[in-house]
């Protein structure tokens, strides 16, 4: 009896390892942080982009409105690509778009907005990138759809046609 238990358990163990490796192959090896849907938005203090006045986050985000928090920078190429979608979204009455200007020079950022138009209702500036970290972001661009001070949806990378439609659907 003892002689049989060993080979059988060995084969079972090896098979389990095989199945796990097989399943593991289908997962992506690039890590993207996930955010639970009901996550509260962070509380922070930051300078306004234009006036350089200091604002608290709760001054900007009111309870029962939709906000799109968009992290952008003039030096980031994908931000240029997503800009037309932001302009499109800025026509939505139910949605306010808040920008977070990430590690940028004011002059370059202003030129960027003058050239491509300004979709933002309000812009914070984040000169050393630490406010983006409060949001759990790690690159530009990243966008967060907010409702009732909760993060409803998170988009890592530029907004595209699909995410545009999704946002429109969510705010209806």
């Amino acid at each position: 009896m003892r002689t049989k238990i060993f080979p059988i358990s060995l084969i079972i163990i090896v098979s389990v390892i095989f199945v796990i490796f097989y399943k593991g192959l289908q997962n992506s090896n690039v890590y993207k942080p996930q955010i639970g849907n009901q996550k509260n938005i962070p509380v922070f203090i930051a300078k306004a982009f234009e006036t350089e006045e200091i604002f608290k986050s709760e001054d900007i985000f009111e309870g029962d409105k939709f906000y799109l928090m968009n992290i952008w920078s003039s030096w980031c190429a994908p931000c240029r690509d997503e800009h037309k979608f932001l302009l499109n979204l800025s026509n939505q009455k139910k949605l306010k778009i808040i920008g977070l200007n990430y590690k940028d020079k004011k002059k370059n950022a202003t030129n960027f907005l003058n050239e491509l138009n300004n979709p933002y209702d309000f812009i914070f500036s984040d000169t050393d990138g630490t406010i983006a970290i409060e949001w759990g972001a790690y690159g530009v661009p990243e966008s967060f759809l907010l409702y009732k001070n909760k993060i409803v949806k998170k988009i890592i990378g530029p907004i595209d046609q699909n995410s545009l439609l999704e946002i429109k659907e969510l705010i209806q």
């Binding site: 084969i11 090896v14 095989f18 490796f21 097989y22 593991g24 192959l25 289908q26 997962n27 090896n29 690039v30 890590y31």
Partner: peptide
């Protein structure tokens, strides 16, 4: 196979990974 995330860059292809995996386990069995 690219199943692991490493600082060393290699082009990955799941199909190749699957082949090596099957071959590896044939040898093990």
């Amino acid at each position: 196979s690219g199943i692991l995330n490493s600082v060393h860059t290699f082009a990955n292809d799941p199909e190749r990974g699957l082949y090596i995996l099957i071959f590896l386990f044939i040898l093990v069995f």
